[in-house]
Design a protein around this nucleic acid. Sequence first.
RNA 1: GGGCGCUUAGCUCAGUUGGCUAGAGCGUCUCGUUUACACCGAGAAUGUCGGGGGUUCAAGUCCCUCAGCGCCCACCA
Length: 889
Amino acid sequence: MKKNLPKTYEPWKYEDKIYRRWERSGAFNPDKLVSAEKSSYYSIAMPPPNVTGVLHLGHALENSIMDIQTRFQRMQGKKVLLVPGTDHAAVATQAKVEKELVKEGIKNPREQLGRKELLKRVRQYSEQSKKTIISQIKKMGTSCDWSRLAYTLDKERSEAVNEVFVKMFKDGLIEKDYRVINWSVKGQSTCSDDELEHREEKTTLYTFKYSKDFPIAISTTRPETKLGDTAVAVHPKDKRYKKYIGKTFTVDVGAKSPLKIKVIADREVDPDFGTGALGVTPAHSQIDFEMKEKNNLDLIAVIGKNGKMNENAGKEYTGLTIKQARKKFVTWLKNQSLLEKEELITHNVSTSDRFGDIIEPLPMEQWFVRVNKEIPGHNGKTLKDLMKEAVTVGHNGDRSKKIIITPNRFIDQYLHWIDNLRDWCISRQIWWGHQIPVWYDGTKIYCNTEPPSGKKWQRDPDTLDTWFSSGLWTFSTLGWPQKTNDFKKYHPTSWMQMGYEILFFWMARMILMSTYTLNEIPFQEVYIHGILRDKTGRKFSKSLGNGIDPIDMIKKYGTDALRLGLISGIAPGNDSRFFEEKLEGTRNLVNKIWNISRYILENQSTSSPQSLSKIKPEELTSADLFILKKMMRLIESTNQQLEKCDFSGASDQLRDFTWNELADWYLEISKFEDNKKVKTAILFTVLKDLLKLWHPFMPFVTEEVWSKFNDSLLITEKYPRKNSYSKIIKKARRTHDFDLIKDLIVAIRNIRAEYKIPPAKKIKAIIYGHSLVNAIKSEVELIKKLRTGIEELTIEKSGPKIKRAAFASVNEIEIYIPLAELIDFKKETARAKKELANYENFSKQLKNKLSNKQFTKNAPKEIVAREKERLEVTLKNIKKIKTYLKSIA
RNA sequence: GGGCGCUUAGCUCAGUUGGCUAGAGCGUCUCGUUUACACCGAGAAUGUCGGGGGUUCAAGUCCCUCAGCGCCCACCA
């Protein structure tokens, strides 16, 4: 056993070394783990960080949560697989690299570099970023299997992407369609609805007529698009306009050819907004496009992909920017006296979250995933149905295939989101990503995982939305579509963890992809965590400059402290704030554990470590029994809490025990105890189990301490169970009659005898620490003995160091607290009586309820059972209180 | 407009299907400390659980309502 550990724990000395030890040991790879049960496979797919940059604190939080769960499950003796990986993050990465290139002076990277060269640059960047990310994940102590490292754009994952695309294509769920989509002029690509950000903006609302003869004025914030109008929509019941419905007017507003404007009725039109009439521009508004479909209108696109007016807009306008065109058109309206009103309003504009420019709705042919179309061979179900089923009744109505979401309030939000879901536009015109596996030869289309033979075939240049590949993550990482052992063993994955902000993007898509492709849910449980905010509650963001680098925190406080600081005081689905002071606290705790270990290990050398089973029960004092009991309860509740994913609660409890019970109380007592052998044995046993309990939270310090007395690794030890403690506690109770008060009385008698104190009526007894006082208060039986034993006894909460002083000069002992203050019998009796009345009342109520046939017949079985159980509990409580009342009477 | 969340000690937050005297960390104050740890110890103070109403033997917890803060979705033509 190594001695003379440094006074404070210095994480940087051990962390990298320990991580390498774990890696070498094979503990991260479930194939190398020995499991008691062959079938106990447990798997988690790591949410792959984007290769757009480095990890931030949010990732650190995820890694902490994930790794606690992973280590806990591994210590349950399961074959645990945590698959690490990264996401190529299509648009995000290309946008980022292009930005950098522009900064370097390459003004138009796509044109100047070409597809091949630009992709090379993006690849270089992403590889660099990947490297950084991986090293950061390792720094966090994440116990993932690096031999299975995956990347959404690598060969295996691309294979999965193609496989699914082809399947969906053949099922008619992926189709090309001409529709109005979200176009980013800056990015020269489509965006899906989820990639939009809404920004509030002040703008002018113009009210005007197309011509003097046109009977209806319309309001718009985008006059320039009106050059492509083909209809005016009014509410069907609007008296002002009813007479015009169905009529077509021809107007000349300066566009290439005069516009034929048909007046149509649509219930969506709000008669109170503006003039109550809406100019319909099918080419440049999704809603107007839908009206076009319903009413069979024409479509005139007046804006091109470059964001400028095209020739349809008319000679005067062709080539103008949106702004210029707007100005020109408004001037024209004014000159023609057609403009009726100009007012300033605020409204939301959609912007591209990656490129940052305002989205231009344009009509285009793109690839879509049909979410409302029946899937062949799925009993008429649609993808939407599959997405809903998995979280409600279970996939295909199979309850064992129902995804449990914590906290469950997100289910409603998720379902609501699905209801509003439109077909998913999956094609992007950027180059970084999975190229669509479709080839054209004139009008012929070929879609397969392998390219067609023949030179004529041209591959579709578009790439896929990044979420398409992310959606396959739970099974693409396991080697699918190959029939791998991993896939058989580890899918569906056991558990998934994510922030609520990507619930819809990611969780929904994983469910879609997995249920559709595999007929299986992607994971059994989802734990949703909140967003990490800064001290003042703001989101961490680059533009605010409030970002904190997790690596800096690790350097300063150590990984264990960071992990603990991130997960303490959090509740599932709720946001939490991060500030450095928190880490000071957790660092101190880590150091506390280090020092407890140091003390115990250094004292261990005097007598060889003993196991609990070798201790004779009669050797135990009440304090020993007390700490063992506490330890037993701690083991039980930590297990329970971790099973419920209450990481914060579990760590709180562990902290309380470690610091308050063990360090400040029991360990201090042990210093003054004669029977050192028992104390050191207990301390050593408790320490060993405590290290195990803490391990998932603070893997490094616990592993380091463990290595001081053990050659095996802590990471693969079994998580403690309460049995070993309950045995000795039971035995000890049987052998001799334990109680704290008895010990106390004996001690006082001894002191009296030793120091020849005359039989005083009152005596002060000093108890070590508050824990025992609470224990005494809660032990009803003891009070009886207390009363029969000594007339008046005072008990003071006090620390062990005062104890030493007191025992040394016992003559100075004075009376402090009268017994009545410890337990105020009058107050107690009143309280207990009140409680008894409450319980009796309640039991009466329950009895009535249960004897009511209406209730037992009609109420759900579970409710009746619950009420019965409640009654039982209540009756038990009544009994308890009655005994209690007797005892204090 | 639709939905969700939050409001508990000076600060940051826990509080499981209603049930013992509402908790923790940090901070504050007092005292202490040569012998595991000042990244320490012993204590103390601080709460109309956002306001109002209701259900119940019992409400921080459930229902209604009002107020403030925050988020998401849709839309604002």
